[in-house]
Nucleic acid binder design. Structure first.
Lengths: 137, 137
DNA sequence: GCAGAAATAATAATAGTTACTAGTTTATTG
DNA sequence: CAATAAACTAGTAACTATTATTATTTCTGC
């Protein structure tokens, strides 16, 4: 239903594979620029535009996720399975939430009570991470 | 805890009052630009910068909420009480979710299981609104 | 009324992202 | 293998939302 049609036949792009590999290799949720810098170590003359374009393609392919947690720039997550995130209001880092399953029943509940067709939801928690919590403000 | 100190003594700004009034008067969740256009009908020579600055002040005052639902631009909500939102993937409109209470217990659960200090969370549902659902894609 | 600070309009600057362009690589098909 | 078409690319320009700056105006308490 929400699955997009495959508009273009995709080739096996070496750059795209490396971008995916870099993103999969980190547990952080990096920005496009961070990914660009990392990938540049493997493909020195890659351009930032290529990184953005391939991140967008990978997202369309359903291999990665794009996050918007209240910052001006997007962050990317190499794990396309729906899960929740935590944003530290002090250091700005984004973490995966562990130990809480995605509540799929709530989508139906929201659908029924509001007359919409709900496909999925996102949840982001905000606060202080362990490290930042220790440092007394 | 998360409450910011009042940095500057605020004056009763006419523009700010009208911006708040405009935002409170709609159930939509408008962008800064939409608000600017509306306010311009009452204060023709107001500048967009003033709108942005006052939205930011109103947010600091806790009178409004800023939303980031996966778009490149922010949307604003005249209701500062935490509540959930629904984004229509077709028309892009943002709605308040009715009939679902904010789950405050989950913040504690996330805190305990991950060792963070969680203050609040946000939840956004995605799908098709009633109108867009009727129109067969 | 006056001093000092807040608020303002207009404008410039910034940052993240996207679009464009001309050239390169790759898969495919005859 | 040669020809062709289309995906892909680096480099760069353009765009857009937002923020900062600046010179000026408006409040507000004394």
């Amino acid at each position: 239903m929400q699955e997009k049609e495959q508009k273009r036949p995709l080739r096996n792009s070496k750059q795209r594979a490396i971008i995916l590999e870099v993103l999969k290799s980190t547990k952080t949720h990096p920005t496009a620029d961070w990914i660009y810098e990392k990938v540049r170590k493997k493909i020195p003359n890659i351009s930032l535009g290529t990184v953005y374009r391939n991140l967008s393609v990978l997202k369309e392919m359903g291999k990665i996720m794009e996050l918007n947690c209240g910052e001006k720039c997007s962050r990317y997550d190499g794990n396309p399975e729906n899960h929740y995130h935590f944003v530290c209001l002090k250091c700005g880092r984004v973490f995966d939430v562990e130990g809480i399953d995605v509540n799929r029943k709530i989508d139906e509940e929201v659908s029924e009570k509001n007359g919409w067709e709900v496909f999925y939801h996102r949840m982001e928690f905000y606060g202080l991470c362990g490290e930042c919590s220790k440092k007394n403000d």
